[in-house]
Design a protein around this nucleic acid. Structure first.
Lengths: 212, 212
DNA sequence: TCTGACACGTTACGGATTTCACAATGCCCG
DNA sequence: CGGGCATTGTGAAATCCGTAACGTGTCAGA
């Protein structure tokens, strides 16, 4: 009876997991939904409700055991194993991504990097070497890759995405400033600082016409 | 009677604006909610509904004039002017942000960059020069800045955020892997590729137990 | 000029999400 | 070892959001 889990809920779980990891680091062994909520700016009820989709992890009168809830969340999210990631597009951005040290400790291994510029092919990048984009499809056929990171210019993003999907990849992290179309069974997340800023300007545009 | 606009709506507007800009580039002068929706994977009804919060921009039987709708959206979002941005934290990531060429054309000017490492202070970065973080507060007092970009390690993010807020900044783009607390009248957006990946793994964890 | 088809703006509905509120329950302390 | 406090898990209520459907204005073509 794995009820359909709302996507908003799934999107919140990683932040819960992260907060729990911090609490564990701080030596905390128990946390209440209240305390966790204050830390994350989320209501306690929402945390309890979210967790209740997956089981009963707390103890009345006490709260949640930090370590065991963290393990549970990691299991739920699939963070208890390694994930193989490839990066396509090694411009300034792709380079920063491929060399970013924050993925490995979380189990995301960068196993390949691709670029269409022959001048970049062969150059070292973190632990991998840049391969020519032409070899992307062959690589995906011969190697299992879980997640594709798209860091190419907008005009190339759809085609790269299609090739990743055809290569069997079911999760895409898109840094390109456009929205590639993907089949329903492929998960895609967008990272676009410009869009983020453009939605914030709506709120700071006017100094609050009225109201306190 | 500026009805309260749902935040989800505001968050979609920039993608509409971006698509319209592309259409304008392609020489299109008119677009229907249907066509725009297909491009963005959004239902036509949603686009019409979203726009109706702000006015009546289309013509029955025709659709929307690409240029005029784009202008309207830019006006609504406050994109018809320049915004002054500062970046705090000039590590690998902050450097990439400060030198990213995608902000300027959209009206986001990087007017200052700060880092606490004296070795970095003084180095050139795009059009600006790195200033020491100690001077952040003074700088904000003397110069108007609209948006702050936080690209410091997690442990420093709350304090940097507080200083930005105290300095009068009302919008923050946070790249740090934690959730800083901000007053209700400050808008904050988070960019965290690790969290994005961690929510995707939930969906690719199992090969769909059943169902098509 | 008239007709038809198109596509907007809007309202009403239904579904999804969040919040509320409380009974149930485990733990601590005296 | 029992009472009381704290905090969970959860249905029900409230809110928020998206979709469908339809009335209406607009344009094109004959």
């Amino acid at each position: 009876m794995t009820l359909e889990i709302p996507e908003v809920v799934v999107n919140r779980l990683p932040t819960y997991a992260r907060a729990l990891a911090e609490l564990a680091d701080d030596g905390e062994s128990v946390v209440s939904s209240q305390a966790l909520g204050e830390r994350l700016d989320v209501t306690p009820a929402q945390i309890r409700k979210d967790l209740s989709y997956f089981g009963r992890f707390g103890k009345q009168g006490r709260g949640y055991n930090v370590h065991s809830l963290l393990s549970k969340l990691q299991e739920i999210l699939g963070l208890d194993r390694q994930w193989r990631v490839c990066v396509v597009g090694i411009g300034r951005l792709g380079q920063a991504i491929a060399e970013y040290g924050g993925f490995e400790p979380q189990g995301f291994q960068i196993v390949a990097a691709f670029d269409s510029d022959p001048g970049k092919v062969g150059s070292k990048l973190g632990k991998t070497t840049v391969t020519h984009s032409d070899d992307l499809d062959a690589f995906l056929r011969q190697n299992h890759v879980d997640i594709g990171v798209v860091a190419v210019p907008a005009h190339a993003a759809q085609s790269v995405t299609d090739r990743l999907v055809n290569g069997g990849i079911r999760a895409i992290l898109n840094y390109a400033p456009m929205t590639p179309h993907v089949p329903k069974d492929v998960t895609i997340r967008h990272i676009d600082p410009v869009l983020a800023m453009q939605s914030m300007t709506f709120y700071i545009k006017k100094p609050e016409p009225s109201g306190k």
